[in-house]
Design a protein around this nucleic acid. Structure first.
Length: 399
DNA sequence: GTCAATTCACATGAAAGAGACCACGGTCTAGTG
DNA sequence: CTAGACCGTGGTCTCTTTCATGTGAATTGACGA
């Protein structure tokens, strides 16, 4: 019986899968298209900066910034891979600093870079300077040029400070066989200002700005990908326009536009609808939001969930302006009921701030004059998402 | 009525501890020839 | 003799606590008009 239903599901999937999608991978974040629309200027600038490496000369460090989904990573990867095709002596090292387990500590970053250069480093146990030496010798053996792309470099600096960048920018002084240059990529324009002046001046010898895409540009990009991704005539008129419009509202994020299109199509496919319609885009939009939040909540450690449960209980009891102190006392209650260890208020305060950062709750630090200074906590998520969060909390016996 | 001082309830920072994980090198032990 | 088990040491990492300092406006109280 079970076997039969499984068979049905799979065979249904196989027979229906091709109605809509021709090549789904095209819509993924990692896909690098041959032609990059509306970034010709940036490509030209970056290519000019990196060109001297083709003749074995050193290259200026360079800093790319612009909001998420404005094509920074795409341009960087595109130009550098083209560079490598032309001259094999150029080595490209791409590191996404946002990825956990890499950017958490200096050690891990160095270990990851060494690993990419072919030197395995144990995940822990070695002194950091030992790993640094491993990395240095790996770079030294490389020869030629090494272009280090540090994507989401602001995440790195937030976590472990800018000392590592200082060391990296000075690497050329310790090594003469290999010429190292760095391409830093950041979402935040103000990031440079937070850096140590010495690092700032070396890192941003050249700067390239990526403005947000506007509606028409997003439409072009989506059209290009949609042609490759979908079978002919599957996309109803207006769908691409809607995706582009929604993403344009949100600081012209091409990544979001692609996500919307992909999820809308997946929803249509699941419904066995032969076409992707505008209502699928609407569904995709709310799904995108809700999935992100739910996924984040699911990944939270038990203590954070307990704090969240306390907040939700206060919201349910219709209490106005919830404060850190209120949350803490409910939290204590929840902990003693479930046998969870009670953390200090200091720590709980940090957990609340983290939940805020993740976008699960909204907080604002306000001063109530004589009555102290505290965080005002609110939940702005919609009813359906909150219900899902409550389900997760109940699974953990916290509600 | 005006204005500086006070006060509250935390926020925020810094430092340090606990306990987990891991690598490495030395020592012990059991199995093999 | 040797491979593998075991142990101690020294390192990192994450979460947490402890201690210290900062914050901003309502309230208070002294002062002068």
């Amino acid at each position: 019986m079970v076997q039969q239903t499984l068979k049905d599901i799979f065979s249904n999937y196989v027979s229906s899968a091709n109605i809509i999608f021709k090549n789904k991978d095209v819509l993924s974040h990692n896909y690098v298209p041959e032609v990059t629309y509306h970034r010709e200027e940036q490509i030209r600038q970056l290519a000019n900066i990196l060109a001297p490496s083709l003749k074995g000369h050193g290259v200026s460090n360079c800093f790319l910034y612009g909001k998420t989904g404005t094509g920074k990573t795409l341009v960087a990867r595109n130009v550098t891979s083209e560079l490598k095709k032309t001259n094999n002596n150029i080595n490209i090292l791409y590191i996404n600093c946002k990825m956990k387990k890499i950017s958490d500590t200096e050690y891990r970053l160095l270990a990851e870079m060494s690993r990419l250069l072919g030197k395995e480093v144990p995940p822990t146990g070695l002194p950091t300077d030992a790993v640094y030496n491993v990395f240095l010798s790996a770079v030294e053996n490389l020869g030629g040029n090494l272009i280090l792309i540090l994507d989401e470099i602001d995440a790195l600096v937030n976590k472990i400070g800018d000392e590592i960048l200082y060391n990296l920018t000075r690497i050329n002084q310790n090594i003469n066989t290999t010429k190292v240059s760095i391409i830093g990529i950041s979402n935040s324009v103000s990031f440079l200002e937070t850096l140590d002046p010495r690092v700032r001046s070396t890192l941003s010898e050249e700067e390239i700005i990526f403005p947000p895409y506007n509606y028409n540009q997003l439409k072009d990009i989506l059209k290009q990908r949609a042609d490759m991704a979908f079978n002919d005539g599957v996309i109803q008129p207006g769908v691409i326009e809607k995706c582009a419009a929604l993403a344009a509202q949100e600081h012209g994020d091409a990544r979001k536009a692609l996500d919307l299109l992909r999820i809308a199509a997946e929803l249509a496919e699941r419904e066995k609808s032969p076409k992707v319609e505008i209502r699928h885009v609407d569904m995709a939009e709310s799904k995108l939001d809700s999935d992100r939040i739910i996924e984040i909540v699911r990944m939270q450690p038990k203590q954070s969930l307990a704090v969240l449960a306390a907040i939700i209980r206060l919201v349910e009891s219709k209490q106005e302006d919830i404060q850190t102190g209120d949350v803490f006392s409910i939290y204590e209650e929840i902990c003693s009921r479930t046998g969870l260890k009670i953390l200090t208020q200091r720590r709980v305060s940090d957990l609340i701030a983290e939940l805020d950062m993740l976008g699960i709750i909204n907080t604002r630090v306000i001063s109530k004059g004589r009555y102290g200074r505290t965080r005002e906590i609110r939940i702005t998520l919609g009813e359906p998402i909150t219900e899902n969060i409550k389900k997760i909390l109940r699974e953990n016996y916290l509600l």
